[in-house]
């Protein structure tokens, strides 16, 4: 465990160490300086970009959850015509790679006039993430006994009430899993952000970083600082949800 931890954490350690040096100190190998961080904030609007990423991420995930939870519930618990077929179609949508639909999607979103700000990216991320979340929630909800929901319904709940007050509270592990996986994916994604968010003032951090690396600076410590800013939130989200996540990924085993 310790060994694994060391191997996992070592790159971070190097990144932190490197970012806390000036260019000269980095080349000579010693010293400490905030210079790279200062330069970074001067070169690109880090705060603004992190905020953009956060907005896009949060909004996308909220949409994914808002659609995925009821849809997963419906597929798992309600009997309706052709539900299996529809479910398979949705699950197969999961297999379609991003690159394959990116251009048609771009055309669509452009036609809707959404390519300027956050909205286009949010729509695309939500559309990409929803099939997976529907699949995961449906699978998880199938493990929830029917009687639990029926007990709620006899106690006076409607289907949405049962979803919200009975199913969601016991689906925290599944929700955490979806949130973390989607957060990491969306936060780290460059392509969609690059294409769909064309206003420079609304650029997410990954795009900022790409711009940085594409010629604004050649300073390794400064790039490291930028990478840290970009990588850290995903780490934090992971650590916060980790407690639930483990349960989510092993669900079904200890039941």
């Amino acid at each position: 465990m310790v060994l694994i931890a060391v191997i996992m954490l070592y790159p971070f350690w190097v990144m932190i160490g490197t970012s806390l040096k000036s260019e000269a100190q980095f080349l000579s190998g010693g010293g400490f300086s905030w210079l790279s961080w200062k330069n970074l904030t001067a070169t690109i609007p880090v705060g603004q970009e992190v905020l953009s990423s956060t907005i896009v991420c949060t909004a996308s995930i909220l949409i994914i959850l808002a659609v995925g939870l009821p849809a997963g519930f419906a597929f798992a618990k309600l009997r309706f015509r052709a539900s299996t077929v529809v479910f398979l179609v949705i699950v197969s949508a999961m297999m379609v790679p991003l690159q394959a639909i990116l251009m048609p999607e771009f055309v669509n979103v452009t036609k809707l006039g959404l390519t300027g700000g956050y909205l286009g990216a949010i729509v695309v991320y939500a559309a990409l993430g929803t099939p997976f979340s529907v699949f995961l929630f449906a699978t998880y909800f199938r493990g929830v006994p029917d009687e639990l929901i029926e007990a709620g319904i006899v106690d006076g709940l409607g289907y949405f009430g049962a979803l919200w007050r009975l199913v969601v509270p016991i689906a925290i592990p599944a929700i955490a899993t979806v949130t973390v996986l989607q957060f990491i994916q969306i936060w780290d994604d460059l392509l969609v952000g690059l294409l769909f968010i064309q206003n420079t003032s609304e650029r997410p951090i990954t795009v900022g970083l790409a711009v940085l690396a594409a010629g604004r600076t050649t300073s390794i410590p400064e790039l490291m600082a930028g990478s840290l800013v970009s990588a850290l939130p995903a780490m934090v989200v992971y650590l916060v949800f980790q407690r639930y996540l483990v349960k989510g990924l092993t669900m079904g085993i200890d039941r």
Partner: peptide, 17 residues
């Protein structure tokens, strides 16, 4: 069901965990 005002006891109890 919610307007019938009947209470049901299930075989596996179906308590809210």
């Amino acid at each position: 069901p919610k307007d019938r005002d009947v209470a049901m006891v299930f075989q596996n109890y179906a308590l809210y965990p």
